[in-house]
C-alpha cells in the first residue's frame, strides 16, 4: 500500500517538474516578443529625446532606462551610466559591453543581436537627423523581427507546454 502511495507521489513530482520545464521553454518565446516590443518603445523615445529635447545621449539613455523596468531598461540605464562615468569611452563600445553583459538575460536570437550591435555602432556617431534616420531603420527591422517572433510564439508556445506535460506523463509511465 505504501509503495503505491510512494509511486503516486514520485510520478506526480516527475510530471510537475517536466511541465515546469515545458513552461520555461515556452516563456522564452513570450519574453522574446515582449523584449522586442519594449526595445521598439525605448528606441522611439530615444528618437524623440534626441530630436525634440536635444538631451545629451548619456542623460537620455539613463532617463529612458530608469522609466522602463526589466532587462531593456537595464540595458539603456547601464549604457548611459557607463558613458557618463567613463568620459573617454566610445558610445558604441559602451553599448556593446552592456549588450554582452546582459546577453544571458535577453532572450533574443542572433539576428536581433546583430541589429542591436549595428544600431550601437552608429549611436552617437552623427547629428540629430542622421540618428533619427538610423533609429527609424532599426525600428522597422525590429518590427519585422517582432512579427516573426509572434509567429514563432504562436507555433511553439503551445507545443512546448503540451510537450512538457506529455513527456512527463510518458516518463512516469515508463518508470512505474
Amino acid at each position: 500500500m505504501i509503495i503505491m502511495y510512494l509511486k503516486l507521489v514520485t510520478s506526480s513530482i516527475i510530471i510537475g517538474c517536466s511541465t515546469f520545464i515545458g513552461f520555461e521553454f515556452a516563456k522564452k518565446h513570450v519574453l522574446r516578443t515582449r523584449q522586442l516590443r519594449e526595445l521598439q518603445g525605448a528606441l522611439s523615445r530615444l528618437e524623440s529625446e534626441i530630436l525634440h529635447y536635444m538631451t545629451p545621449l548619456p542623460e537620455a539613455l539613463v532617463r529612458i532606462g530608469t522609466t522602463m523596468d526589466g532587462v531593456i531598461g537595464d540595458l539603456f540605464c547601464s549604457t548611459g551610466q557607463m558613458l557618463s562615468e567613463k568620459r573617454n569611452m566610445i558610445t558604441s563600445q559602451a553599448w556593446r559591453n552592456t549588450l554582452d553583459r546582459l546577453k544571458d538575460q535577453l532572450s533574443l536570437n542572433e539576428e536581433e543581436y546583430d541589429i542591436l550591435y549595428r544600431f550601437g555602432d552608429q549611436l552617437g556617431g552623427s547629428y540629430g537627423q542622421g540618428q533619427s534616420k538610423y533609429i527609424g531603420l532599426t525600428l522597422t527591422q525590429l518590427y519585422q523581427q517582432e512579427i516573426k517572433a509572434q509567429e514563432c510564439r504562436q507555433k511553439y508556445e503551445r507545443m512546448y507546454k503540451s510537450l512538457g506535460l506529455l513527456g512527463g506523463i510518458a516518463l512516469a509511465v515508463l518508470l512505474l
Binding site: 507545443m159 510537450l163 506529455l166 506523463i169 509511465v173
Partner: peptide, 8 residues
C-alpha cells in the same frame, strides 16, 4: 502518449 505527442 506517443500518438498525442506525434500530433502535437
Amino acid at each position: 502518449l506517443i500518438a498525442v505527442i506525434n500530433q502535437v
